[in-house]
């Protein structure tokens, strides 16, 4: 099946349709759990981009979501004109970022889990830079 390329408006209400489209695409190639993982990774990445974009006052351009598949990998890539993840954070994200102390509710953070969920949902996550844009590439192994 051919890949898909979607433009996503920089609005939180536009995250769900893009995430569900990613899930539908992934479900053609992955089981239910794998497709749900792709949906979550896409939703977290788009949400992060939109929230940070609004903070920096750059809400005028669309994000681009591409979905592709080859015999080995399902690849999701999200493009923006600023880095989607700050330098160094991707390497630090992982299961240890989700550890909590259930006895210490006062200091339990309400935020900061998105990047760890992206990393743990996918098999490979990498940042890419071209002269005019940045992307977060997320891959799921098939089979």
């Amino acid at each position: 099946m051919a890949g898909q390329r979607l433009r996503v408006r920089r609005h939180l209400a536009c995250v769900a349709p893009a995430a569900m489209a990613s899930r539908d695409f992934a479900r053609l190639h992955l089981d239910e759990e794998g497709a749900s993982s792709v949906e979550l990774a896409v939703a977290e990445t788009l949400t992060n981009a939109i929230k940070h974009g609004q903070v920096r006052g750059r809400d005028d351009t669309d994000l681009v979501l591409s979905l592709d598949v080859d015999p080995e990998w399902l690849t999701v890539e999200i493009f923006d004109h600023v880095p989607l993840v700050p330098d160094g954070l991707l390497q630090a994200a992982g299961e240890q970022a989700l550890e909590i102390d259930p006895e210490d509710l006062v200091n339990l953070s309400e935020s900061g889990r998105g990047l760890a969920l992206i990393v743990l949902s996918m098999d490979e996550v990498s940042l890419h830079t071209t002269p005019d844009r940045f992307s977060l590439r997320m891959r799921k192994r098939l089979g």
Partner: peptide, 9 residues
């Protein structure tokens, strides 16, 4: 579906 923002809530 639940994301990390909803977990935060």
């Amino acid at each position: 579906f639940i994301d990390s923002s909803a977990l935060g809530a």
